[in-house]
Design a protein around this nucleic acid. Structure first.
Length: 126
DNA sequence: CTTCTTACA
DNA sequence: TGTAAGAA
């Protein structure tokens, strides 16, 4: 499929898809006219890339880690450590989000009761 | 009409 | 990342 089709199928802009390729995250074949071509499997590939990017992994990290998803043969011990570090980091992010959620939930509850957040705000300032 | 590259906000 | 310009 062409870049426009992949963009429509993944939600990523054509700009991003070219950028992923430039970063070595996504491969493509060129038609005689220079047009990029992608296999249908690219849809899943892009989905994973976007998830990892959204989770905070850098392009460089994804570049190193992504190939082991397809080739189990290239899984090395240092790669496992690499993934372990990312897992730890993401778990930390989840913990932070839980705290943020609690703060927002309490704020919302106070609005329901008082129609204002004065209680929470004044409490936290004290 | 769609994509390509390059370059700028 | 988005968008513009000129070419294919």
């Amino acid at each position: 499929m062409r870049i426009g089709d992949l963009a429509a199928a993944t939600g990523a802009s054509a700009r991003s898809l070219r950028y992923y390729e430039e970063q070595g995250l996504l491969a493509s074949v060129r038609s005689p006219g220079g047009q990029r071509g992608y296999p249908h499997a690219a849809v899943e590939r892009v989905g994973l890339i976007r998830s990892l990017l959204a989770a905070g992994l850098t392009s460089a990290t994804i570049r190193d880690v992504l190939p082991c998803v397809a080739d189990e043969s290239i899984r090395t011990p240092w790669l496992a450590d690499r993934l372990g570090d990312e897992l730890t980091r993401v778990e930390g992010q989840i913990a932070d989000l839980h705290r943020t959620r609690d703060v927002l939930a309490e704020l919302v509850e106070n609005y329901k009761i008082n129609g204002t957040a004065e209680t929470v705000l004044s409490t936290n300032q004290a």
